[in-house]
Amino acid sequence: METNNNILEIKDLSVSYTVANVVTHVLEKVNLTVPKGKSVGLVGESGCGKTTTMRAILGVLPSNANIESGEILFNGTDVLKMPYNQLQEFRQTGAGLIFQDPSSALNPVISIKKQFLTSLKYAHKDKNYSSAQLYDKAIEALNAVSLADPKRIMNSFPFQLSGGMRQRVCIAMTLAGEKELLLADEPGTALDVTIQDQILRLIKNLVETLDLSVIMVTHSLGVIRQVTTEVNVMYAGSIVEGGDTHQVFEHPSHPYTIALMDCLPKLTGTGISEGIPGRIPDYDHPPAGCRFYPRCTYALDRCKSEVPGKTIVEDDHWVACFAAEEGKVCPK
């Protein structure tokens, strides 16, 4: 894989949180690559660190978070080392985040119009649009996410909108920024299936027509299959398997991925954690070796103390698992 083809490369990113003097090591050496113009999936159960990864990319982690080590290269430049002005420019034109929780992502005491236009003003700073042009752009974006009566929505406050409307406003706001890289943190979880489907198709369409690059964060393997060409499976703060979506789905090689797919029918309901016995380890005392070790049915002795490296499964598909490396994992 040549570097210059990748819009984003995350290398060995480790992030911890400090709560009341307890340090929780959430992200542990995350590696993730997004090729230009491609849509990449990030899947994993609740609490595994997906949102943390997305926020780290834009440098908007909560104030109690700590980046321990790693690089986040955007077109070859490390976001973590950018001076303020360059970071601002990166946020304005480089990457945009669709927030997971739409009810908290809009300012409760400021009108949608003001929030939308301020965001757009900076996203399109270089183009010198007039406010009328920005307004038109906003209306267009609201139309694109199939919100009826966008003018009324612009003049509303968030509490006057339904949850689904708020979510679509957030999506429209981020999409209207027309950044190079879209970070979509579970877009559409509060929406009904048809509208969610419509939004996914909209994003897919943008990837195809505008050469947009996307990281699609989701619980849903169905969404992954529908919109992504590559997928990364995250477990407890590390990527455990990744590669071409098709290949990963055909030959899931990590015991966690296999378990995920086994409980596919249950996924639609309350999430993954019900499907796989056990739960994500405590981040303040994570297992020394493979973090999946306590829940793994294929666990070997060395898994307890050693962290597995990457093993190539097929040309565009890798896994980090000792059992898989030794050929001991066989999907049922």
């Binding site: 926020r55 834009l58 908007v60 909560p62 104030s63 601002q88 420019e89 990166f90 946020r91 304005q92 034109t93 945009g96 985040l97 927030f99 929780d101 908290s104 992502a105 809009l106 300012n107 409760p108 929030q115 301020t118 965001s119 900076y122 996203a123 700073k125 957030c170 706001m173 981020t174 920024g177």
Partner: peptide, 15 residues
């Protein structure tokens, strides 16, 4: 300052 709605505008590159 740590609320999502502040993070949201910050992440859009608003100074």
């Amino acid at each position: 300052a740590d609320k999502d709605y502040i993070t949201m505008v910050t992440s859009q590159g608003v100074p």
